[in-house]
Write a protein that binds this DNA or RNA. Structure first.
Lengths: 233, 233
DNA sequence: TGTATTTTATTTGTCGACAAGATTTTCTGA
DNA sequence: TCAGAAAATCTTGTCGACAAATAAAATACA
């Protein structure tokens, strides 16, 4: 467990925060750290073999991203997953799928397309290998590559944040159900790539929406029995 | 200038960061701190009469929000305004105007509407008084109240961030041109309120888009002579 | 035995100090 | 005079320590 910090504190200056931030972030998103559980600064400092200062900075950054909650003068804890307002998350996610894909169809250049296709191959491999974790990761990378091709940094950063949060939900999903993993998504990705390549804005957006709604429906069927207010925008 | 920190360092525990964060944030958004200018931690520590630690935490938070940029091991500076990609900002802003207004028409409850109308009165007062700064602030509050009524925290936080960034641009706009301030916006706001109140989703969204496009066009006419790629979503 | 109050312990927010990088200045040699 | 190396200065990242705020434990009291 203490692999990341050897005894000798020979670390490059300024890499301390980044290390703590990256590791904690991954552990939160991969549900290694349980949502709602408390975080002990001193313990983390010992674990990473550094003082509390860089740990603190990492925590502040995570808090700014909404990954941890910090009660003033009291404990800081891993942000709980808001199951009650899950539908608002899905609304935001679907919208970003649509917008970024449409913009990609409009603004992409050749190197963008190469990267997108590369991510799609990685995603297909993950599906073939039935590797749920790799699927989650490569799927996010695929859609982020599309978003980047859309060339709107505001949408990209917002979308990235949503996808991160989604990692926890999907993780939960794949944790509870060992499912035949959706080969269907691979084909849908291919269709989206074609639409982007042909600069067919409407089709790209439509496919993105259907794709997103499909995933959302599947996740929601398993996680929340309750209703979702469907919103047309 | 040093009003915020008297000689006696009698400050409530934990209020240090908040103070520094709030003040710096306002100074950045109000263009008191020039975009691109350097930030000196030690100087700030002296000014706020506290050690570098809380200053540092405030800066980290500001950096997480994109309000300052921090070059590793080197200086940190006020985030420059990205005039080149301004159109991406406007695209995001217009979309959020539309989405939040539509959702407000769908999900608002009576107390929401009261708050929205209150903000609208304040906005109208600011227009009447020709107070540009108050206009910027109350306009943002008005639209944020609408967003809150839409009950999607993801959209709200994203929108809030965009409106903040907009403060700098609008500030620039009002700084250079002493204009007859747009009474027209007041009427448009009234129309939006009616649409929300009547739960007319389509009309609410349409009015929001027109309103946003109107503002964008006016700002863009003055700031960027270049073209804007108009995107239909 | 259960509740209120004091004591103790834990944890967080802040501080001053120090060292690693980076920047500027000074010095050297052509 | 100017380019390059060395030294001095400045700024940032990290550390250990301390004090305020909170939580937990212990005690007193009914």
């Amino acid at each position: 467990m203490e692999l990341e910090a050897a005894t000798g504190s020979d670390r490059k200056r300024g890499s301390g925060v980044k290390l703590a931030y990256d590791v904690l972030r991954d552990e939160i998103l991969d549900l290694v750290l349980q949502p709602g559980s408390a975080i002990d600064e001193v313990q983390l400092a010992e674990r990473f073999n550094m003082s509390r200062t860089p740990i603190r900075e990492a925590l502040v950054r995570l808090a700014a991203e909404g990954l941890i909650q910090t009660l003033p003068n009291r404990s800081t804890l891993v942000a709980p997953i808001d199951f009650l307002n899950m539908h608002t998350y899905f609304d935001a996610l679907v919208l970003m799928y649509r917008v970024t894909t449409k913009l990609a169809a409009q603004h992409h250049r050749s190197p963008d397309l190469a990267l997108i296709k590369e991510k799609q191959i990685q995603f297909a491999d993950a599906v073939k290998a039935q590797d749920a974790l790799a699927m989650i990761a490569t799927n996010a990378e695929f859609h982020l590559a599309i978003a980047e091709a859309g060339r709107n940094t505001h949408f990209v950063s917002f979308f990235k944040r949503l996808l991160d949060e989604g990692r926890r939900i999907l993780r939960l999903y794949y944790q509870s159900y060992e499912d035949r993993l959706p080969h269907r998504f691979v084909q849908e990705h291919e269709d989206m790539i074609s639409a982007i390549e042909n600069r067919n804005l409407e089709l790209a957006e439509e496919l993105a929406r259907d794709h997103a709604e499909q995933i959302v429906a599947q996740v929601q069927k398993l996680l929340v029995p309750g209703e979702r207010l469907k919103i047309e925008i």
